[in-house]
Design a protein around this nucleic acid. Sequence first.
DNA 1: CATCCGTGGGG
DNA 2: TCCCCAAGGAT
Length: 396
Amino acid sequence: MTAINQDFSLKGWLGKSAIEDIGPNIEGVEVWGPKTVQAFRKQLLAWYDQEKRDLPWRKEKDPYAIWVSEIMLQQTQVNTVIPYYHKFMRQFPHVQALSQASDDDLLKVWQGLGYYSRVKNMRQAAQQVMEEYGGKFPKTQAELKKLKGIGPYTSGAIASIAFNEAVPAIDGNAMRVFSRLFAINADISKARNQRIFKAVIAYVLDPKRPGDFNQALMDLGSSYELPKQPSDPESPIRNFNLSYLTNTSQNYPVKQSKIKTKTISLNALLVRNERGQFLIQKRPSKGLLANLWTVPLFEQTTQDKPSYENLVEETQEIYHFHPIVMKTPIGHVKHVFSHRIWEIDLYFAELSWTKTELAEVEKTDWLYLHDLDQHAFPTVQMKIWKALHDYLKNDE
DNA sequence: CATCCGTGGGG
DNA sequence: TCCCCAAGGAT
């Protein structure tokens, strides 16, 4: 009888694979017995010792460095993180430095990495460490989880890697590997199924080397056990892998989700004053791209007048000046976020004078195009700058 | 619990 | 071009 969260039984593979014995049923999953668990740990860690990736944060035992890397790695790939990690550690080498950082400095170092609330939460966590833990990171998963931005996964990762606590660090890799190992058909995107993976992985985890065990699952997930591909025949765990043995690894993990993205049409005002500066403004402190800078963006609702007329009107209302706006866009930028798409028409405008009092009052500033490193811009704004640059270059 | 929150790479 | 995906957490 197949267990409720498992598509196949281990018993048929006793002796015909690396599966030597059968263990208890855990949350509906029939798992290995102690001999097989030992053999699996040994094989996984031997492979890890031989083949582990040489990553900058793996040279560190400092929990601060581990923490920085883990936050950056949330939903973000290793190759993207590496340059940001070096820059961040250089600029904020310890908890105290981070706890005193300014919003603008934090966003500037995080620019282009995405999910910007992560770095804001990091500073709050750094302040917690300074004030509640005397500047030293707490050493248990339970305490780490109390810090802002540190949840079930990250607390497990830091506790196991930096402090050798025998707790799992369950991310997408760990769930993918284990769903394949035991042919677990529970949907990994459902919160209620987390307990299944937590219980099974905690059972198999090597209590002597929890940090290496957890990181080995990550390396496996980025090499032989890739998403959208079946388990690789060369995978070092193939003989333990029930889905591989039954030729069904492409069915795991089970995962639904995907939110449909909504497209929003925007008009961007690229207004140049008599000094040759462009108007920028800081976005609200909550929501998408919070506290980052963009040129003024106006949503284009369906039954509007021509865009340039809107821009003139709205500029008058909001900024109290009246620019000369070109009637046709000088360019277009498309930007895809995780859950929405911006289609932006770029309108060039000129101002025959300079309105200095705008700054401070409306969180606005006038900016020379050679001064882009003074503010934190999201990627969509960098695309707008490039389109503007191309336009101005061709215009000469 | 479902939705919000970025970005770059790969098929 | 389009869709999926990646070392999640807050709300």
